[in-house]
Design a protein around this nucleic acid. Structure first.
Lengths: 184, 184
DNA sequence: GTCTATAGCACGATAGAC
DNA sequence: GTCTATCGTGCTATAGAC
């Protein structure tokens, strides 16, 4: 499994995947570039050849989420009526968490990543738009609390060991069901 | 506000409170004992006089949660019937999060604290018991997912800036309502 | 019980050979 | 593009004066 082919950009992807594993285990601040390099079997300088700084690596990790949220918002804005828009956003968020479980978990829990998010304007703006869309106009305290609980719960559910054995399709349906119980 | 009285154990409490603030802001690994000492206006060695290691400080932070969960389980076991037990646990957890918002958030989000929890057997055991009680016998996938979402959402809701302006009594009622929508 | 000073080490990041 | 070697910094933790 070590260094199998050598296609373009493959090392970069392997670094990102390994870093993400370690970030989930130990947090961003708790993971050194040396640990990433060691687990990958390369030198630390090899990591620095792909990412100028540790921050750049974090930015590269969250970029796909920014892209996904952008597409999601485009689809939602094309939907007719607020109920349909909420439905599009809920389905899109659940799909995103299923597809990128670890990124979702690290994004919501780690202060170091949250700092990187604040430094990525497009991601911060899109996250805020998604939240506002789910909150709706003049939201009640009840809806505010329900959204806060659902948002945190959704982002972290993808890596919850208690749910690790559930087939993805079951988890998808149950997350959608939970979302509808709380937000529709 | 600096060093007001000097009663026994006061410095220790002030260190814990300051450490907790910083842990919420930057994470445990992202917070050095120097930062804690600086914000408190004391020397780093003063912190080490109260806590032998950084781990000991973390252990001291999570100890009240272990105590609270212990009392909670005692009350739950004294209740008649599973429905009443679930109600006791839900109310107790919500009350705990309201009383110790920051500890709850750090406990659920930070890998460094989660390691400390695993190293505190009584806390790990009690957390597992609380979860098992809420799951009930032979839980469906639906209940597993609902509990996972609720658990993460509850623990982090206490420090969610979106909810910061809600009066505590409103937040209490809405968290109880959310819990019942998901778990009853 | 609080301080200054420092040991010993790991960190992020860089330089330069190959 | 990967390596070894290293710089400067900041970390946990300790020693010892007051």
């Amino acid at each position: 499994m070590a260094k199998p082919v050598g296609r373009r950009g493959e090392t970069r992807e392997r670094i990102l995947a390994t870093a993400l594993d370690l970030f989930v285990e130990h947090g961003v601040h708790g993971t050194s570039l040396q640990q990433i390099a060691d687990r990958l079997g390369v030198a630390k300088a090899t990591v620095y050849h792909q990412f100028a700084t540790k921050d750049a690596l974090i930015q590269a990790l969250v970029q796909p989420v920014a892209d996904t949220l952008g597409e999601l918002l485009t689809r939602a804005e094309a939907a007719a009526g607020r109920e349909a828009q909420v439905e599009v956003v809920i389905e899109g968020l659940v799909e995103m968490v299923l597809a990128r479980r670890q990124i979702a978990a690290v994004m919501h829990g780690d202060p170091a990543v949250e700092a990187a998010i604040r430094a990525t304007p497009e991601l911060a703006v899109r996250s805020a738009k998604v939240k506002d869309l789910l909150l709706g106009p003049d939201p009640s305290p009840s809806r505010r609390v329900a959204l806060s609980v659902f948002n945190a719960g959704l982002m972290l559910s993808g890596t919850d060991p208690e749910l690790a054995e559930l087939p993805e399709e079951i988890l998808r349906q149950e997350l959608l069901g939970t979302a509808r119980r709380l937000l529709v």
